[in-house]
Amino acid sequence: MKTLLVAEYRDGRLLGSTYDLVAFASQLGGESAMFLVGSDSDLPQYDGTLYLADSAKYGEFNPSVHKQLLLDVIDKEQPDMVVFNHSSYGWDLAPRVALAMGAAQISEVVDIVDGALVTPVCNAKLRREIKAKTAKCVVTLQAGAFTLSGEPSGTVAVEKIECDAKSLVVFNGYEESEAGGVDLSKAEIIVSAGRGIGKPENLEIIRSLAKALKGEYGASRPVVDSEWAEHNRQVGTTGQTVSPKLYVACGISGAIQHIAGMKKSEFIVAVNTDRDAPIGEVADVLVVADLKQFVPALTERLAG
């Protein structure tokens, strides 16, 4: 199996998720090479060929141009599999490349079982084994599903690449999220509210428990999208990644994006009416109860 790994750059820095690709490739075995639109100033630690296009020239986000740069490398390297992270960069670029290659794409791979790739279905309530019928295929990897056991090491052999493809979209730069607010990544105890709180007034139940535990409160994406909580309270891939001593997930079903943001917590308590909620997969304790009754009772017990 020969793989081509598509590394990512953001704001002039190599993203750490690049090493998930390396971990996946080593699990598969065989040769690999790497592709990056980036710069000499921050190169991956990797023993192999790095096809490097200059991000100052081609932009960090420019799908039609990155596609062409990648297709030129694919043409030269003839990989069996092209591997992306399942990220805002990867899920945007991968289908474009797959279509141009005439290859199948398997999205959000979490495991390899007997040569088939495993992906989550229905919010990870089911697992699906998938195989490509095409000779070559494109895959994207779920964040954190494949990780290196040790520190990354190695030296790349850089091969500079160029192309003159036309751009269909214009990238006008990044916008940082509003400054200020809480840094949940430093909190030792976090109590988070999910869709199960039902209405915005019930956020107070969650805040009270957080206060009784001398911790911070957080929220899942639906709660923030509904504007029941500020964005700087959001835990998950598009919010903050946290690893407190205690994480209490209240009414959070456990979307993959949320779990990716809190699964490294030392001790996880989930409060949910659904015994089969995916949050149970990562919880040390699942309390099957209505949070509107259980959480105030717990708060009272702790205060008393």
Partner: peptide, 12 residues
């Protein structure tokens, strides 16, 4: 576009 970690990319 929504990117990871609360960052957005402005695209036209």
């Amino acid at each position: 576009r929504e990117l990871e970690g609360g960052v957005k990319a402005k695209v036209s």
